[in-house]
Simulated scan of single mutants.
Amino acid sequence: MAKPESLFQFDEAIQTTFLGTRDGKSVYCGRFSEKWRAGDVPHGGYAASTMLNAARHYFEGKPQSDPIAVNAFYLSKTALGPYIIEIWDIKASKSETGYALIYATVRQKKGYDPAPLTSITQYDPIVYPVHCLDAVITFGNISTEQGLTYLHEPSIPPVRSTLQLCKLPGGLNTLAQRMVWHVDLSHFPTTSAPGTPVLNHTMAFADSRPIDLWCLPFLSDMIIPPPALLDASMLATGWWFPTMQMEVQFKRAPRGKEVACTFKSKYTINGRYDIDGELWDEEGRLVATTR
């Protein structure tokens, strides 16, 4: 028997509550869970999925039901604990075949914040001055999309026989007990050879949560940054791997409980790098691309 959505750990962690409207903006609140952190801050992809989940509720009752694209910008470090998400229209559409765009922003207080708000009357934007994560989000209806489908030199998903079950390393160890990770270690550095900035792996939730559109931003950022796989001597000056911006393009609604991914960094210049990623579901269908 499938577990009710409310019992899956990830769904509990991205849950938001609608407080009401203020200054023409819909206001949601929630709490970033320490169970979904990277180091001592909320995981960046988890924060993006939390924002997308608020957008999901914003579009309830509207003609559009599916995320088409997320363009997220990480402005400052998020903190574990309460947050506010404001959402407002950029472009609305009354057509089920049309696309609608919204702006969403995650705001937090400076310093310790004891608990989420319970009423819109409690919300004062001045008290939440820290803009942590902003995004432009496009919604539509994937099931009604029509047009040319043409794949030019498409990538292929990782081959299962090349992957090994591993534990997530370093700052992701808090997530190790919540995710099942199979990875291709052939791109990792060894004592005799440097690695290459390519990451091929599969990801699944340890509690068997199905893969859906709402967790894809999390899975798009649930990675070891490919440049971190280079030889240690190349990183001797010390590196930090924060996500500055992330785009996720949604292609299909996933099926199954595992996603296969490939991520590649072609260019690392002056310490700044880009990542091109593709994500496939259990049936080998491309469900998202990311950059």
Rank of each mutant, 00 (worst) to 15 (best):
residue 131 H to E: 15
residue 76 S to G: 07
residue 116 P to W: 13
residue 109 K to V: 10
residue 100 A to W: 04
residue 80 L to R: 09
residue 78 T to D: 05
residue 78 T to F: 00
residue 76 S to W: 01
residue 112 Y to K: 13
residue 99 Y to R: 15
residue 138 T to N: 07
residue 112 Y to R: 14
residue 90 I to F: 02
residue 132 C to K: 05
residue 127 V to D: 15
residue 77 K to Y: 05
residue 96 E to A: 04
residue 117 L to A: 02
residue 108 Q to T: 07
residue 87 I to H: 08
residue 133 L to M: 04
residue 79 A to I: 00
residue 121 T to V: 12
residue 98 G to H: 07
residue 127 V to T: 15
residue 112 Y to L: 11
residue 119 S to W: 03
residue 122 Q to P: 01
residue 98 G to E: 08
residue 128 Y to S: 00
residue 81 G to D: 08
residue 132 C to N: 13
residue 85 I to M: 09
residue 110 K to V: 08
residue 83 Y to Q: 03
residue 138 T to L: 08
residue 79 A to Q: 15
residue 112 Y to A: 12
residue 107 R to Q: 00
residue 124 D to K: 10
residue 135 A to T: 07
residue 110 K to G: 05
residue 107 R to D: 01
residue 104 A to G: 10
residue 118 T to A: 13
residue 133 L to W: 01
residue 88 W to I: 02
residue 127 V to N: 15
residue 129 P to N: 04
residue 110 K to T: 10
residue 111 G to E: 11
residue 102 I to Y: 04
residue 117 L to T: 02
residue 77 K to V: 12
residue 100 A to H: 10
residue 80 L to K: 10
residue 100 A to C: 12
residue 105 T to P: 02
residue 83 Y to P: 01
residue 114 P to W: 00
residue 113 D to C: 13
residue 92 A to M: 10
residue 107 R to C: 02
residue 115 A to K: 14
residue 123 Y to I: 07
residue 138 T to D: 06
residue 78 T to C: 11
residue 112 Y to H: 14
residue 96 E to H: 02
residue 106 V to R: 02
residue 75 L to M: 13
residue 125 P to A: 06
residue 117 L to M: 05
residue 104 A to E: 00
residue 98 G to V: 07
residue 109 K to T: 13
residue 129 P to G: 03
residue 128 Y to C: 02
residue 87 I to G: 05
residue 120 I to P: 06
residue 92 A to V: 10
residue 86 E to T: 12
residue 96 E to R: 09
residue 118 T to M: 11
residue 86 E to K: 02
residue 133 L to G: 01
residue 99 Y to K: 15
residue 114 P to R: 09
residue 134 D to F: 03
residue 94 K to Y: 03
residue 106 V to Q: 06
residue 125 P to K: 09
residue 75 L to E: 14
residue 123 Y to W: 12
residue 104 A to F: 01
residue 98 G to Y: 01
residue 125 P to M: 10
residue 124 D to E: 10
residue 135 A to H: 03
residue 135 A to V: 06
residue 104 A to W: 00
residue 119 S to F: 01
residue 119 S to H: 13
residue 126 I to N: 08
residue 97 T to V: 12
residue 81 G to T: 07
residue 89 D to K: 07
residue 97 T to I: 11
residue 103 Y to Q: 07
residue 130 V to L: 13
residue 106 V to I: 14
residue 91 K to E: 13
residue 125 P to N: 13
residue 93 S to G: 04
residue 109 K to M: 13
residue 78 T to Y: 00
residue 88 W to N: 08
residue 126 I to L: 10
residue 81 G to F: 04
residue 96 E to M: 07
residue 101 L to N: 09
residue 87 I to N: 04
residue 133 L to A: 01
residue 102 I to N: 02
residue 122 Q to H: 05
residue 124 D to G: 00
residue 105 T to W: 01
residue 133 L to I: 01
residue 128 Y to E: 01
residue 122 Q to R: 07
residue 106 V to K: 04
